[in-house]
Design a protein around this nucleic acid. Sequence first.
DNA 1: CGGAATCCGGGGTGATACTG
DNA 2: CAGTATCACCCCGGATTCCG
Lengths: 134, 134
Amino acid sequence: MEDGTSMSATHTDVRATTSCEIRDLLDRLADKWSLLVVELLGSGTRRFSELDRDIEEISQRMLTLTLRNLERDGLVSRTVHPVVPPRVDYALTGLGESLLAAVHPLVSWTRAHRDEISTARESYDSRRGHEGGR
Amino acid sequence: MEDGTSMSATHTDVRATTSCEIRDLLDRLADKWSLLVVELLGSGTRRFSELDRDIEEISQRMLTLTLRNLERDGLVSRTVHPVVPPRVDYALTGLGESLLAAVHPLVSWTRAHRDEISTARESYDSRRGHEGGR
DNA sequence: CGGAATCCGGGGTGATACTG
DNA sequence: CAGTATCACCCCGGATTCCG
């Protein structure tokens, strides 16, 4: 992982540094569900089953794994209530909320340019769409 | 794909809507390299081989695929110079630049909280780290 | 109810070789 | 130089089952 070959800094390696940041970011959040869960928790504490229901398409397994990772990174807090039946609440930590804030521009961007992207995509596809793939 | 069961809108589906945005976003950019390439192109036009060298860990195959996708979505422009040897330049489109701007807060966030996350992670691991995985 | 363990398939990803 | 094609691998993620 840490190839560390940062000696290739012929010139300023601001690029390389930024690359690492992004790599870091991607490795942590570029999975299928993390940001989604963070976004949901942004509107308040939720129980496991609530998250499960709200996302629907997610499997319990992935919800659990996602929450674990987020908890591990200090983005989400997990609170177990010693009652029967068990009740576990998840919420964003301060760190998680700051992430959510940082993500928001990206969400807005997606919303704002969704159509543009669709158009570009269709245009591209029709240009070479043709021969049904294989 | 489109399970489309959006009829479950018992109450306001603002959440669901946002979820879709994020899903959209993730499906498009949450791969291993897209954001990285966008970030690199943010500092100016680059040739294929330059990108290849700058990222290093990426394979030609993935660089090609990534660039194709970005081009398809209208985020990156591709310019072929009819010379020998071939020269192809890649650059961000206006749309791509706007994406970059939207991503920047996230990059800053990562840089700012990298340590916090590492700490949280180590703490979490040491709490249950124990038995070296498997 | 919340979660862990297991099994399993698909596809995203990498390495390599070939082409224009 | 800038790709494309093919193969093989690995791991993400879904379905299911069992546990406290």
